[in-house]
Design a protein around this nucleic acid. Structure first.
Lengths: 198, 198
DNA sequence: AGACGTAGTGACAGAGACTGTCACTACCAC
DNA sequence: GTGGTAGTGACAGTCTCTGTCACTACGTCT
């Protein structure tokens, strides 16, 4: 029985963000969040697994877009170009959520427990990317490695984008993947054994 | 006042590993661990920040070796070759700890809360690698990207090493870094803008 | 209209993680 | 033997998270 028009879930998220930002994650209790949302503590746990999860609801949307884009890519495309393509498909989502993401980023940045959860979320996306690549016939180890590298390049581009709102994310992504090539170029100098990718 | 020869800290670690492995992380209470180590619950928290931390004591050793090796590398060496060099310096440590690490890996693998903590530890090492690269004059964004890629290659090699105990870790590392080159090679096909690394 | 299923919620009890604080003991340096 | 330091016990307390039962709102079917 919602006390106002918005569903309880949304009210809880908004209350949590407000309180976390104002007093710090550690100083806020679930009881306070629930009271502000007009529900009981128990109801909070019906919507979110724990105190951190309330901030990471949007991550699944990004993951789903990326996985779908990988599945739709031309079958002959190599792993990293496939990932670059999928990241480009997610740009509109990120640009649309930018305003909402700003306060979240601030809160997460200063709270170790939340950074830990965010890293876990990123690891989950990497795992999903690897699975999507395996479905295209890429071997498991190569898919895992490519997914990690691709996500690293994506984060690299995202960092630049957050730092300078004026830049075009799509172009930053292209630059990031070029940086991968630049970084790995010196490795060719000292080969040690035969190639082995599959 | 230790009840036996070994310091309480070691007894707590051993008790935690034993109980976590036997009954599962979630089913074990701090009181049980403390009782088995012959101390009180309060003493557990004097040695370890929380219930998970007791399993991740060795990670700092790996980090310190890697950072030291980076600092000692020739100043002209590129970022990724520098990282490869530092990972090679850590091989003896990993080979020496292999027997102890096996049960830890089993426990962590099946417990989401512990995997989360392990990801945080890995992120901490990546951060330390990036800092060490910056100290050599590598720009902050490039250092962060290189550290992530390097750690991905390291994990790639470690996964193969854990899967097949017979392999030489040093050679697997070389193969992993070659795989980086192989993966990024197709990116050169569609350049979009000028190079920008610093 | 009335029976029924389902989703969302309140209320209560409880286990267990983690913290703050004070007092005590062992040990080392001087 | 005096004082400092590290390690510990004991106790109280807060807060997170879970299990359970009952209740309401709402749509569906008959």
């Amino acid at each position: 029985m919602p006390r106002d028009g918005r569903p309880a879930r949304l009210r809880l998220q908004q209350a949590a963000i407000d309180l976390y930002e104002r007093h710090g994650f550690d100083q806020v209790t679930i009881a306070e969040i629930a009271a502000r949302a007009g529900v009981t503590e128990r109801t909070f746990y019906r919507h979110f697994a724990d105190k951190r999860e309330v901030l990471f609801d949007g991550e699944t949307g990004l993951r789903d877009i990326l996985v779908a884009a990988i599945a739709e890519a031309p079958a002959t495309l190599e792993p990293l170009p496939t990932l670059l393509r999928s990241f480009r498909a997610a740009v509109p989502l990120l640009e649309g959520n930018r305003r909402l993401s700003e306060p979240l980023r601030r809160i997460v940045a200063v709270t170790p427990a939340l950074r830990e959860r965010q890293q876990a979320k990123t690891a989950g996306i990497i795992e999903a990317l690897a699975t999507a690549l395996r479905d295209r016939g890429v071997s498991a180890p190569t898919a895992a490695l490519a997914a990690q590298i691709g996500m690293a390049a994506f984060s690299h581009a995202a960092a630049a984008w957050w730092a300078d709102p004026g830049q075009d994310f799509g172009m930053l992504l292209g630059d990031s993947f070029e940086d991968l090539s630049t970084l790995t170029a010196p490795l060719a100098a000292a080969p040690e054994s035969g190639a082995r990718l599959s």
